[in-house]
Design a protein around this nucleic acid. Structure first.
Length: 337
DNA sequence: AATACCGGCGAGT
DNA sequence: TCATACTCGCCGGTATT
């Protein structure tokens, strides 16, 4: 089990992820560590390790750089997932794509001693469906023309972006399988899920995804911590100082400035509260971030008092966004001086 | 009427 | 005393122009 220990008590915190042996015994991501330990109390082989995000990030970067040249376009989708567009290497069949996939698996195994799962299909949506079909160490190909027969019997929750809430809403409309969804009326879906998501659901159910494989820019950075105890207030400098410093360093490392600072509070009832503010001038330093965040928390507390719904805070965080290249900025400024 | 901003929510690793 | 740390994206409301 890979755990995030929140530091409140010995075992407070959550399981971030776990291996397939533990999953088969009922351990899940997000589960309280205490619960996982209860499930595995008679299992001497169970190991609980603290998450080391920086280490995973470093391994991830090595692997991403290694596999990036495997196709024409590359898109890192998360710390452990990427899409590679190999359209130009591939004829009507996927023989060549399969060769590329096998080579990627072999490279990762020999260089990092890790297995991975590969999914090959006509678009990103179907590639994701494919890769999810066989894990771990899987290799799944959905040949052109077979998309719908692959999708049809699956529960709608298998679609990327359809989580518990959306699934529940679909169930209430009598939609269980992806085939059910594909036969729905677009207007009905639009009414329930909005102008964008409604039609998008229908397209997904039919295996249609036109989105290109494209590099992603970092759009936000955030840091969040758990307070030692739930409280109505907290020491800004003590709690926000270190995470402000962290964020300012990350900004500097990527040669960025930001224009928007936001704060996040998670209450004792696990409700999420946010405040954010976009500044006219660039924000870069630890002190600028800390000052902006402190102001936002003050505002959150005062508006909350007026609402006479007192809450206590469990976790607090800072989020920065609206990035610009700091290099370009200083050059532009010099031009004015 | 379009656009920008804001807070909440949902989803994913 | 059960409930992490991140990231991305959409929705609807309101402010701004």
């Amino acid at each position: 089990m890979i755990c995030v220990f929140s530091g409140r008590t010995q075992d407070s915190g959550a399981v971030s992820t776990c291996n397939y042996i533990a999953r088969n015994l009922g351990v899940r991501s997000g589960m309280p560590i205490v619960l996982a330990k209860r499930i595995l109390r008679d299992d001497p082989s169970a190991v609980f390790l603290a998450m080391d995000l920086e280490y995973y990030q470093a391994v991830s970067e090595r692997i991403m750089e290694m596999i990036r040249p495997s196709g024409q376009k590359f898109e890192q989708a998360s710390i452990d997932e990427a899409y590679i567009d190999v359209t130009q290497n591939v004829g009507p069949d996927f023989d060549v794509a399969e060769k590329i996939g096998e080579r990627i698996k072999a490279e990762i195994l020999s260089n990092e001693k890790m297995t991975c799962s590969i999914g090959i299909a006509q678009n990103k949506l179907m590639a994701k469906i494919a890769v999810d079909a066989h894990k771990p160490d899987g290799f799944t190909v959905i040949h052109p023309g077979l998309e719908k027969s692959f999708l049809n019997p699956m529960p709608v929750g298998k679609l990327f972006g359809v989580g518990p809430k959306t699934e529940e809403k679909l169930e209430s409309l009598g939609v269980h399988t992806i085939a059910d969804l594909a036969s729905m009326d677009q207007d009905v879906l639009s009414k329930s899920f909005g102008k964008n998501l409604g039609p998008a659901l229908l397209k997904m159910a039919n295996g249609i995804d036109e989105s290109p494989v494209a590099e992603r820019k970092v759009e936000q950075m955030s840091r969040i911590v758990t307070l030692k105890n739930d409280a109505e207030d907290f020491e800004f400098a003590d709690v926000l100082g270190p995470i402000s410093l962290d964020l300012s360093r990350k900004l500097a490392d990527s040669k960025l400035i930001c224009r928007t600072v936001g704060v996040i509070a998670i209450t004792n009832e696990l409700k999420i509260k946010t405040r954010s503010k976009t500044s006219g001038s660039p924000i870069q330093s630890k002190d600028e971030i800390l000052k902006a965040a402190s102001g936002l928390f003050v505002e959150m507390f005062t508006t909350q008092k007026d609402a006479q719904q007192p809450f206590r805070i469990r976790r607090v965080g800072i989020k920065i966004s609206d990035f610009e290249n700091s290099q370009n900025r200083s050059e532009t400024l010099e031009g004015f001086v």
